[in-house]
Write a protein that binds this DNA or RNA. Structure first.
Ligand code: FES
Ligand code: FES
Lengths: 138, 138
DNA sequence: TTATCTGAGACTATTTTAGTATCAGTTAAG
DNA sequence: CTTAACTGATACTAAAATAGTCTCAGATAA
């Protein structure tokens, strides 16, 4: 069971790179090199982060990506949601209007509360807090 | 992001069926019918539960499966571990001796503590408690 | 002896995750 | 005004995880 996929992991690292160079445009190539992420792959991730308004890009030579908003506003939970979708109970169809099993489903309420707990934890971790930790390690 | 896969979900349902008929041997067919799980699939799950000592089987006509130990001893966390493996951080290689990224890895400690939190929650849910809830719903 | 069961293992299918390749268009700098 | 360093978009392929099927040998109750 994985709480975090490679996608998310890479995305966080990429954002940390951008966060490490405020106001600068950093190319995908540089991110790939700094974090040892496959070049084309990180480009894809960065583009996705752009679609979700976490970063902005600039075309052409000297271009690249930079954070759109302050690191304190970027939560780990957001990143996870972008790359792994919402936290959700297996095949339980309770999102699809009415689940036929619902009346005798025992897992549902438990999972939902644990999901909320996890979400809360992930919400407490921001890019800012991660950047600080990183500085502490250097 | 899924905390629970279909595997686990089915397995829990199967165990609930067995738990609903203490001391009786229930056939895979009956479990499949009661819970609308594909027959061959549930057989495979039950066999796995047997390998992990949660249930015992009896061959031949009138045979089937029954819980090996008391429902109070069967934790949701056990079932998840059987079907989804340990909770673990993405590709972080810190299990493999030394991870090259470790020194500048910021996610590791966070994820580990959240993993422990989740594990603790799942440990608090037993087959017994689920059976009780189910009775309350009937 | 037959119908009903499990054990085991090989398969196939589907979905999710990871990664690559290509091409058109933008921009800075010589 | 050409070239090198970029991004946007999209279509791919590959690998891994999950879900589900099929078949056959052997056990057992009736
Ligand atoms: S399976 Fe639908 S409510 Fe749980
Ligand atoms: S990636 Fe290895 S310690 Fe985090």
């Amino acid at each position: 069971m994985k709480l975090i996929t490679k996608n998310t992991d890479y995305a966080v690292r990429a954002l940390l790179v951008l966060g490490g160079h405020p106001q600068e445009y950093i190319s995908a190539r540089q991110v790939a090199l700094e974090q040892l992420i496959p070049y084309q792959y990180v480009r894809k991730l960065l583009r996705k982060l752009m679609h979700y308004d976490l970063v902005v890009s600039r075309d052409g030579a000297g271009g690249g990506f930079t954070l759109k908003s302050s690191p304190s506003k970027i939560k780990l939970a957001d990143i996870i949601r972008i790359f792994q979708g919402d936290i959700q109970l297996s095949e339980c169809m309770f999102r699809k209007k009415i689940c036929p099993q619902r009346s005798r489903c025992v897992l549902r309420t438990h999972i939902m509360s644990i999901e909320r707990l996890v979400e809360k934890e992930f919400n407490g971790i921001t890019l800012e807090s991660m950047l600080k930790e990183l500085k502490g390690k250097k």
